[in-house]
Simulated scan of single mutants.
Amino acid sequence: MTDVFPQGVVHDAAADLEGAVRADAGVYDLWKALTPLGRNEFICWVDDAKHDATRQRRIERTVEELLEGKKRPCCWSGCIHRTDKAPSRWQQAVLIDGKGRRGA
């Protein structure tokens, strides 16, 4: 029997994130204890990285934040891909419409 990796509501963790979480049994237990929405936020945050180096830092930070007892990524505005709730005004303006970004 295989141990199915718990995913998010909208997003599924890629192999690199799953590998980092599974690498430490304690971290994996913390991951499993998160709600699907909490896991979704971490996965979306990692997937949102535009560069491989940023993605790797976010994976490392995910492990650190889980060990710190965090249930969501620090300083993340939230997943804009969920269909069960509308994006906040800030998410709509900054993340979706691109307004308010420097140089945008």
Rank of each mutant, 00 (worst) to 15 (best):
K70A: 09
R58I: 04
K70F: 10
H51D: 12
E64Q: 15
L66A: 04
L30H: 04
D29N: 12
E18A: 14
Y28I: 09
F42C: 07
A53C: 11
D29G: 12
C74F: 11
Q56W: 01
G38V: 05
E68S: 07
Q56D: 14
R82L: 08
C74R: 13
Y28S: 12
K71S: 12
I43L: 09
D84Y: 02
H51T: 13
R22I: 01
G69V: 07
K71P: 01
R82N: 02
T62K: 01
V46A: 10
C79S: 08
F42V: 06
C74W: 09
E60G: 04
E65T: 09
I43Y: 07
E18M: 10
I80R: 06
D29Y: 02
Y28H: 15
G26F: 06
I59G: 01
A23Q: 08
R57S: 07
K70Q: 12
K85T: 06
T62P: 00
P87R: 05
W76L: 07
D48I: 11
C44Q: 03
D47E: 15
L34Q: 13
G78T: 04
A25G: 10
L30W: 03
H81P: 03
R39Y: 06
R55P: 07
R58G: 04
A23V: 06
D84H: 07
G38P: 03
E68R: 09
W31G: 00
E18V: 09
T83H: 15
K50H: 08
L17W: 07
